[in-house]
Design a protein around this nucleic acid. Structure first.
Lengths: 136, 136
DNA sequence: TTGCGTGCAAAGGTTTTGCATGGCA
DNA sequence: TGCCATGCAAAACCTTTGCACGCAA
């Protein structure tokens, strides 16, 4: 039977406040410390594991380590785009995604977890810069 | 001006021999050592960086760290599927992928790097096991 | 009171870096 | 000969684990 603690509440509300963003475990630790609600990193990792198992948080593996995102909405068509140049992560919604997942399931018998889709590429800003550089 | 060395050749041919698979940097080191062509891990990481910059190798970030895959073919429709249960990585080809990339580029102005697409989910074997467990 | 959750510190693993050495051109 | 690439070891880094303690129920 799980206990409710001050730390659990703090971690959850902190990651919730990044609703449309994503944070690393260590960023959470830093933020909580700044707020005066210090929580040990071990506890943060353990909480994030639990929250992920409950489906309340997504864990996303990037080049720089794992980052986490709060999740309260339908995720069927949501996905993340990481710009390989500036490192920013964008959140998009694309209606063509769930048909693709269905197709993959029917043709290749693989059940996609839509919460973990992360594509890499170039964001608009960086793509523009590239073009500008090529011209000069 | 780059020099050509025994080690470079060894790393490249070793990763090439995994044509349809993927290896971690440390697995490469292990394999090379077993072949009697010991190469330091630092060198392997440095080589993989260069090969990735040249587009000859894909770097894929997984839960367990980075793995690398040789790349010599058109990659427009290739992608990877990682089973979240057994950890296996499958390589698939799906004609619906490049239209999706085009759509994302046109609608959301993000240029996808098709070499890095990695989706998560459940492979057929593990999905079957899940179903079996639920029934019992 | 019971035992789960926490914090600290240490361990674990992967990847990077500094520096002296070796080997290609 | 000049200089890049290598190897080793140490460092950096993120994440997990062990264990004693604190606190919720």
């Amino acid at each position: 039977m799980p206990y409710h603690t001050r730390q659990q509440q703090a971690v959850l509300s902190c990651i919730e406040s990044h609703r449309d963003g994503h944070v690393t475990a260590l960023e959470l630790a830093e933020e909580l410390r700044a707020k005066g609600v210090a929580v040990g990193v071990a506890t943060i990792y353990r909480q994030l594991d639990k929250l992920e198992a409950q489906g309340r948080v997504h864990k996303i593996n990037t080049e720089e380590g794992a980052c986490y995102q709060y999740c309260d909405h339908a995720v069927g068509n949501c996905f993340l785009l990481k710009c390989e140049r500036c490192g920013r992560i964008l959140h998009l919604d694309c209606a063509q995604l769930s048909p693709l997942y269905r197709h993959i399931q029917e043709e290749h018998h693989f059940i996609i977890n839509p919460r973990k889709t992360l594509l890499y590429g170039l964001c608009q800003t960086c793509a523009r810069e590239d073009t500008a550089h090529e011209k000069s």
